[in-house]
Design a protein around this nucleic acid. Structure first.
Lengths: 334, 334
DNA sequence: TCCTTTTTAGAAAAGCTTTTCAAAGCGATT
DNA sequence: AATCGCTTTGAAAAGCTTTTCTAAAAAGGA
C-alpha cells in the first residue's frame, strides 16, 4: 500500500497536521520534530497524494496539449518547447494526438475536463465552433499555437504567415525566377493556408508577375500528397522554374517528384520550403526554407497559458513571432 | 465554479447518492428520477471530479510514457501506437521527454508517482539501477519498449536486434559486398547497441569476412554525429563499398557525408539503415532499411502494461516482434 | 387486510490532504 | 507569582465522490 500522511505521522510520532506543515511551511515546526518527520518521509518514500491535493487546491498543475499529428516533426518541436516551459513553470503535460479528427478531439477535451487540466494549448488545427463551445462551456482556459481565430477572442501565438510567405516568394523573384508555382494547404481545414496563399499572391503582384497567381496546387499535410500535387502542378505548368512550398515536407515531396522526373533541384527548378524542420538540413539537397521559431512557439504558448491562468488575462491577445529566411541548397539564381 | 454532484442533486431534487447511482448503476434508479438527473447533468455540463474519484478508486486511468527524444521520429511512431492502445483500453497518456538526462528522468518518475499514474512505459533508454530502484520503491508497474533488462525481471517489447542486424549485413554480403563498415550506437548508454554490433560481427564471420569486424565507428543518436562518424570511418577505410547503419538517421547522415564527398549512393557505396522511419521513404535516395514495427511496438507495450496492471503479471516476460528487410534505393549489387 | 420480500432512496463514512481554529506551552515582563 | 503574548501543536472541517448500511416504500403473497 502507498504510505499516507498518517503513516508518516505515526512513524514520527506527531500529528498529521505537523507532517503537512513540514512539507508546506517547514519553518513553523521545531527542528527536532521537523527532522523526525523528514526522516520518516524518506524512510517511507512518502509522496503526497495528488488526488487529495487536487481536491483542495482545485488545480492539477497539469496542462493539456492537443496536437494534430505527432509524426509531423513540426509538432515534435512545439512539444519540446512547451515541455521545457512546463518544467520551468511547474506543470505536467498531457499530450493528445487528434489526427485532425473532430470526434476524437472532442473526446479528448472531455478527458481533459475530467482530469481537471488547468488549461489547454490547442495546436495548429482549426478552432471549430464545436471545440470553442465545449471549451468555454467547461470554462477551460486555452490558447492557440500556430493558429489563431478570427471569430473568437482567443489568445494565440504564431508566425506572420502572410508576411513569411511573401518573403519566401520575394526571395525567389529576386533570384530572377519569373515562372513560379506553389504547393499550398487545402484551405478548408487549415488556418495558415489562406494567409500563405495571400502572401504568394501579394509578392507576385508587387513584382508584376500576376500571371503566376493561379499556379497553385493543394496538398493535405503529408509528403505523398505533395508529391501528387507537384505532379499536377508540373503537368499543367511545365515552364515553372521555382516552387514555393508551404511546408518543408511539401518541399521534400516536390523534390522527390522532380528527382523521379530527372529534373534537377536546384539546377533546373528552385524549391523553397517553410518551417525549417530538423530534417530539412539533412535532406539532399538541404532545403532553403522559411524558419519558424518552432521550439519558442511551444515555449511561448505555455507561458501565455500560464499568464492566462494566473492573471485571468493576457497582455497581448494575438502574438506573432519572427520568421527567418534560411538559404541552403535547394534554391539557385535563374 | 465547476458544478459538483451536489448541484446536480439540487437541480434534480434528489440526493447525491441517487445522482451517483445514475452514473454508475443507472438501472437501480427509477426512470422518472433518472431522467431528471440526466437532464440536470446535461444542463449543468456536469462531469465528475477526477480527483475525488481517484481518491476512492486509487486509480488515475493514466499511463506515463518516458521518451528519450521526442524529436526522433522513431518515438513519434511509438507514441502514436501507444496512444491508440490507450484509447482502446481507456487510459489517458502522460508523455515526458527525458533528453536522456538522468536527473530529469528521476524527477519525472517522481511526478508520475505523485500524479498516481497506474503504470509507466519506459522507452528505449538504459534501465539504470537508479531508475529501477525508484520505480520499484514507489511500486509503480512498468514495462520497457525497444529495450530490455538483463539485470532485472522487467517485461519488455522489442525487436530481435541481433538477428535484425545480422539480416541487414547478410543482405549486404549477398549483394556481393566484401568491404563493409558500420555506424553503431555508443555502447555505454545504449541497450540496442551491443546486440546490433554482435549481429554485424556474426554475419561477417559466417561468411568469412572477419577482417571487417573492426570497421565500426560510433555515433550518438543524431544525424550530425553520424555524419562525423562516417567521416572517420571512410578516412580510415576508404575501400568500403557498403555501410550498415543502426538507425535510419545515421544512414541519412552517412549518405549526406558521402554526397558532400561526391561519392555516389548507391553507385559507389551501398547504405542500409535501421528502423524504417516515415522519412526514410522520402529521403533521396530512398533508404534500404530494416523495418521495425514501430507503431505496433508502442501499441503492444501499452497492452502489456495493461495486462500487468489488471492481472498483476504478464504471460511472456520478454517479447520480440518481427522485423523486416525493406529494399529501396540506397543499396545495389556490387 | 396484514405480513414478508424486494426495490428504491437517503444518510453517513471513507479516501487523503490542507487549513482554520483553539488550546497548550513557554518565556518574558511587571 | 501572575499575566501577557508568542510559538507550536493537534483536532476537526472541508473538498467531491462512491459505497455501505439502514430505512422507507412498493410489491407480492396468503
Amino acid at each position: 500500500m502507498k504510505p499516507t500522511i498518517r503513516d508518516v505521522a505515526r512513524m514520527a510520532e506527531v500529528s498529521i497536521s505537523t507532517v503537512s506543515r513540514v512539507m508546506n511551511a517547514p519553518e513553523t515546526v521545531v527542528p527536532s520534530k521537523r527532522n523526525r518527520v523528514i526522516e520518516a518521509i524518506k524512510e517511507l518514500k512518502y509522496q503526497p497524494n495528488a488526488f487529495a491535493r487536487g481536491l483542495i487546491y482545485k488545480k492539477s498543475n497539469t496542462l493539456g496539449l492537443l496536437i494534430p499529428d505527432i509524426e509531423n516533426l513540426y509538432f515534435a518541436g512545439v512539444i519540446r518547447g512547451m515541455q521545457d516551459a512546463c518544467i520551468k513553470l511547474g506543470y505536467s503535460l498531457m499530450i493528445c494526438n487528434t489526427d485532425r479528427d473532430m470526434e476524437r478531439t472532442l473526446s479528448y477535451i472531455d478527458t481533459f475536463h475530467e482530469k481537471q487540466v488547468d488549461g489547454i494549448v490547442f495546436a495548429s488545427d482549426m478552432l471549430y465552433p464545436e471545440y470553442y463551445e465545449k471549451l468555454t462551456g467547461f470554462r477551460i482556459p486555452f490558447v492557440l499555437v500556430s493558429s489563431h481565430s478570427d471569430e473568437y477572442e482567443v489568445p494565440s501565438v504564431e508566425v506572420d504567415d502572410e508576411l513569411a510567405a511573401y518573403d519566401a516568394v520575394k526571395f525567389l523573384i529576386e533570384l530572377g525566377h519569373k515562372e513560379i508555382g506553389m504547393i499550398g494547404f487545402n484551405h478548408d481545414n487549415s488556418v495558415s493556408g489562406p494567409p500563405r496563399a495571400a502572401g504568394f499572391v501579394r509578392a507576385l503582384t508587387e513584382f508584376g508577375l500576376e500571371r503566376n497567381t493561379g499556379r497553385i496546387k493543394y496538398a493535405n499535410h503529408r509528403f505523398e500528397h505533395a508529391y501528387q500535387a507537384a505532379h499536377e502542378l508540373f503537368s499543367e505548368y511545365p515552364e515553372l522554374s521555382a516552387v514555393f512550398c508551404v511546408a518543408d515536407e511539401f518541399a521534400m515531396g516536390t523534390i522527390s517528384y522532380l528527382k523521379d522526373r530527372n529534373i534537377l533541384v536546384p539546377g533546373q527548378v528552385s524549391v523553397i520550403g517553410f518551417d525549417n524542420l530538423r530534417m530539412s538540413g539533412m535532406f539532399i539537397p538541404k532545403l532553403t526554407t522559411i524558419a519558424q521559431p518552432i521550439y519558442q512557439l511551444g515555449y511561448r504558448a505555455a507561458e501565455k497559458l500560464h499568464e492566462l491562468l494566473t492573471t485571468g488575462n493576457v497582455a497581448v491577445m494575438k502574438e506573432q513571432m519572427e520568421h527567418k529566411l534560411i538559404v541552403r541548397e535547394s534554391s539557385r539564381e535563374k
